[in-house]
Design a protein around this nucleic acid. Structure first.
Lengths: 138, 138
DNA sequence: CACACTTATCCACTATTATCCACTACATAT
DNA sequence: ATATGTAGTGGATAATAGTGGATAAGTGTG
């Protein structure tokens, strides 16, 4: 299970280290694709299979569902680790998620998300506030 | 069952001791995550599992549910004790709860909460007053 | 076919983290 | 009252992980 927030840097060659403690669970190859909210999602092979099944259940004749599937599938790339546990971020994905140098990797149970640090900071502080607010309202 | 209020110091290396009498009940690893009211919550593995079950049924594609999952899951970190019963507080959690050096750990039945001492003091005195006020109203 | 350019593999440095150990204070017991 | 044990705090050293660069291999183009 993946949890937690980790900060890394993408270097000039677009390499990005995965948290060391996740290496074992991630396996030798992972699938990276576009995520909701302008971030990237990293799947293990298994969780990618599960994801595909869910996509399979969508009404593919609906333009909206079909568009969604196109984004996810055409966006997906299978990548492998180098000896030091880094993966290569394809250009179009880096661009999609607006990744600069500073990046946040966060664990979301079965998958990981990759965010540009600035974007993540402003997103998560807003979410934090929401949580505190809604709790007060109870 | 955890109860009581305990005062500890976080050292420069972000280590925090857990009350000695709780060590056995806490096990070898605990989950620490964001709590409401800008504090941290420490779960045993079991109470964390229970917590996750409650989250389990969320529709993860909905922005709101996804945001909530991001706060809870990305906020959570599984940590283990060193030989002297201390855990490591990740930077982002320390920041979230505004932890300085002086810290209060308080028992809340199935879980523990970690507060910055100053914040706790002002919070608890206000709560004390509230209780006394409502008592007068009776 | 040679050259430039991109991509992959390998290696080195540095910073961070984990582990181990020491000191002090308090409490209990002899 | 002194000794003994336990817990909290702090620091030193060793190991690991993150980052950046260099070299080698592959690819495409003129």
């Amino acid at each position: 299970m993946f949890t937690g927030e980790y900060r890394y840097k993408i270097d000039v060659k677009k390499r990005l280290a995965m948290p060391a403690k996740f290496r074992g669970e991630l396996g030798v190859r992972v699938i990276i694709t576009k995520g909701i909210t302008k971030c990237l999602v990293v799947y293990t092979k298994k969780s990618w299979q599960d994801m595909l099944k869910k996509l399979g259940g969508l009404p593919i004749t609906e333009p909206e569902a079909r568009g969604f599937a196109r984004v996810i599938l055409a966006g997906a790339m299978e990548v492998s680790f180098d000896k030091l546990g880094r993966i290569l971020i394809p250009d179009y994905l880096k661009k999609y998620a607006g990744l600069e140098k500073e990046v946040v990797i966060c664990g979301l149970n079965k998958e990981l998300e990759v965010w540009d640090a600035k974007r993540w900071n402003s997103y998560i502080t807003k979410q934090d506030e929401n949580m505190n607010k809604s709790e007060k309202a109870k």
